[in-house]
Simulated assay, not measured.
Amino acid sequence: MRSWILGAALALGALPVAAETVGKVGVDWVGNDIVIEAIEDPKVAGVTCHVAYFDRSLFDRISNGNWFEDPSNASIACRQTGPISLGAIAKGPKGETVFSESRSLIFKSLKVTRIFDEAHQTLIYLTHATEVTQGSAKMSISTVPLYGAK
Rank of each mutant, 00 (worst) to 15 (best):
G135L: 01
T113L: 05
L110H: 01
Q121N: 13
W67R: 07
E96I: 10
C78F: 11
I39E: 04
A88L: 09
A119F: 03
T113Q: 12
A137M: 15
S85W: 05
M139N: 05
E40Y: 02
G82L: 11
N64P: 04
L123S: 06
F99N: 08
S85Y: 08
P71D: 05
I76S: 03
I39T: 09
E37G: 03
I84N: 08
V132K: 01
T133I: 03
H50P: 00
Y53M: 11
I62R: 04
A90F: 12
T122Y: 11
G148A: 07
S140R: 13
F116Q: 00
G87I: 12
Q134W: 13
R61A: 12
G82W: 14
Q121G: 06
S142G: 05
S104A: 10
S63P: 07
I141L: 12
K111L: 04
A45P: 09
I89A: 00
E69K: 06
Y147C: 01
F116R: 03
T81V: 07
G92S: 11
L123A: 07
K138P: 00
L110G: 06
V132E: 02
A52I: 14
A74P: 13
S136T: 12
L58E: 07
G92T: 14
A119V: 07
K94D: 15
L105M: 13
S100P: 06
F99P: 05
T97L: 07
S85G: 03
T130L: 00
Q80Y: 07
N73R: 06
G46S: 03
L86D: 04
D55W: 15
I76W: 06
T143Q: 11
T130F: 01
S100E: 15
G87A: 02
K111F: 04
A52W: 14
P42W: 09
C49V: 02
G65N: 10
A38Q: 15
S109M: 04
L123R: 11
P83R: 14
Y125V: 03
F68P: 05
Y53I: 10
I141M: 10
G87H: 09
V47L: 14
G87D: 07
S102P: 08
F59Y: 04
H120P: 05
L105F: 15
E69G: 07
I106T: 01
D70T: 03
V44T: 10
S72T: 11
K108Q: 12
P71V: 06
E40V: 12
P42N: 09
K94H: 15
S104G: 09
G95K: 13
G46I: 09
G87K: 14
R79A: 10
K43R: 14
T127C: 04
R61Y: 06
I89N: 08
S104F: 06
V44K: 06
A45M: 10
V112K: 01
V144K: 00
A137T: 10
S63Y: 13
I89W: 02
H128N: 08
S85H: 13
I76L: 09
I84R: 13
R56I: 13
L86A: 11
K94Y: 13
N66A: 12
I62F: 13
S57I: 15
T127N: 11
Q80P: 03
V132D: 00
G148R: 12
Y147D: 14
D60P: 09
W67I: 11
A119H: 09
T81C: 03
S142W: 02
K91H: 08
E96Q: 09
V47W: 09
D60F: 13
A119I: 10
I141T: 15
